[in-house]
Design a protein around this nucleic acid. Sequence first.
DNA 1: ACAAAAGTGTTTTCTATACACCCATGG
DNA 2: CCATGGGTGTATAGAAAACACTTTTGT
Lengths: 225, 225
Amino acid sequence: MIKQSIKLSVDAVVFGYEEGKISVLLIKRKYEPFKDKWAIPGGFVLNDESLEEAVERELQEETGVKINYLEQLYTFGEPSRDPRGRVVSIAYFGLVRPNTFKIFASTDASEVQWFTIDELPELSFDHQEILEMSIKRLQGKITYEPIGFELLDKKFPFSDLEKLYTTLLGREIDRRNFRKKILGLNVLDELDEKVSKGSGRPANLFQFNQKRYFQLKKEGIIFEI
Amino acid sequence: MIKQSIKLSVDAVVFGYEEGKISVLLIKRKYEPFKDKWAIPGGFVLNDESLEEAVERELQEETGVKINYLEQLYTFGEPSRDPRGRVVSIAYFGLVRPNTFKIFASTDASEVQWFTIDELPELSFDHQEILEMSIKRLQGKITYEPIGFELLDKKFPFSDLEKLYTTLLGREIDRRNFRKKILGLNVLDELDEKVSKGSGRPANLFQFNQKRYFQLKKEGIIFEI
DNA sequence: ACAAAAGTGTTTTCTATACACCCATGG
DNA sequence: CCATGGGTGTATAGAAAACACTTTTGT
């Protein structure tokens, strides 16, 4: 058999949501190739760790991120995608709550920074393509899986959810219809807590009930916006 | 840096449709591990070929299949999935028209055979899991992308399409509503040819118009069953 | 003439959408 | 008392679902 000399890496597109904007976590590369260019966090898989472990380790090492939701996106394997030689990369797609931890750069990264998705810098390797695919996946997925909650605080006012959806889908949503639909799915618990945003009527807080969601999903009830 | 010793393979779940049954193409392994057990066709990626090239090469080598539709499914990377050591496998999912070529076993395969998806043998490695994921993906995908046509002859009677959908979705479909919906999508050309199935009224033949589909898709019209 | 599969419209039900006013609080 | 964001119901239109008989061929 021919000796195979392919290296395997993982990359993670991590989305966060704050102040009505969707952001992506990028690192500035400390080493060649693409030294001092921005890139998606990631790195080589170790011999005895699973792919998910590799992603979480690399994220922790390079950025300090605590991931909240992680799913495999796609595997990129064009022979020419990395100038160092053949590197196949398994890309993941993650969601976090940016306000629950502090990001810091280390190991291969000289900087870490949140970039809103309409103000992205030039990226290394084929990371532009990976990022575009991730954004499409996120936009698609929130319409049929309740992953939007992973971007919000555990307890959130309904208006936060609405704003998240208008932002992600890029269109206005009728507040009454949206509320009717989401509450009709029966996966949100209304809490006996209110929060005020400075002015205006205080909003009731809601919480996603994952247990009930899985129960309903098992019964064949589908989440759809 | 630690020396990485991970091998990379591709596997392909290939579906075919004949006589009202969905089948999967499996090979009997000629070598250890899992010698003489059934498995999904696949093998190691060469250093300078793309992942898709690797899949098509392995399929050609092991089974003689000419693939009609191919998409990446998922990458399986559990450290323990292969007894030979660390092997990460990128699984693909393919559709073919079984009556357009002849299958034959060679290289790593001692036999090749179509198995209907309700009469599957025991499988090697984690191929059972891969196959289950593929079936789910196929079932899901035919409801929002017109890939069902890739399993039928280029020219087909409408009843074939209907039967394919009832088979895949596992439920009855109202003939009139289904026809109304599909023809309303405007991606099928009705030909001036008829075909008779022995008894009964001869059926008109239809053909999928991919060009028109891509045109409509670009305009934002979505295929949905 | 009858068996077997193809082809065809209308009615009903449900779901999605459009739409505007009152409520609770802070300043 | 006014500015600000939160909360609520109904009417209409469009889409999905239910439903049965006629047509064309082979035997």
